[in-house]
Amino acid sequence: MLLFSRYTYWAGAMVALAVALAVAGRAGALDPVQGLFLRVSAPVEGGFGAAFGPVARFFDDVADLGRLRSENRRLLGENETLRNENAALRGDVRRLGELEEALGIVAADPSAERLPAGVLSRIRGPLTRELRIDKGSGDGVREGNPVLSVRGTLIGTVTRALPGASFVRLVADSRSSVAAQVLGAPADGVVRGDGASLAFDLAEGDVNAGDAIVTSGLGGAYPPDIPIGEVVEVLGDVQDPFPTVRLETAVRIAATRTVLVMISFVPERFGLGD
């Protein structure tokens, strides 16, 4: 009988081991071993990533060809608009700098608060999306630090900081929720991931396709005004007070190799659900 075979004793031993590992993990006893393992496995992962990355990108590009063509046409138009806006903004920045100088305000250098980190691996589990980066608690990274793309878009939050590496839970992870608002409009809500894409659960106000969504800072988990994405679709009836709002982020995680960790910002109360 299988029930009385040696599998039974082995399964019992595995359950006992699982309980022991759970206790040791909660107590942090496994952290040094994990740090050592990640140091050993990083070169192997890097080798695999370098070998298979081009193959995956080729398949991605083939699948995306139609979308890339239409996106290219749209971006060409946008590029011209943005160039014009950029020129106007440069003038504004110059004027703002003069005003700040006049008021005696010394603006802190934002780049000093952002630690560049390399992406070691992109982890995809059931409903979960995470990154492992090459900076850890030894570099000043702490749990709760927001993580941005190199252009300043919110990517996620550090949920685990080991001495030489950290794990970042992406905004698209289904466990993530970010208090957010529509830029320049009195509308706010929560951005949630579903493991693949982003949705904006509107709590108050109106939202339209093309609106930019930024962090609101409510709850203290993120600083305000960090770009998250753009509204691409609003589903539901016009009268619907809580429509389904789909977001698109400008960040392509699959192509992201460097991120910025806001090491100067630690949420007032860090929790995994934040």
Binding site: A18, A22, L38, S41, E45, E130
Partner: peptide, 14 residues
């Protein structure tokens, strides 16, 4: 090992 690399509790993987 997988728990360490994927940031999942090894107990869950067992």
């Amino acid at each position: 090992c997988a728990g360490f690399a994927l940031n999942v509790g090894p107990e869950w993987l067992i």
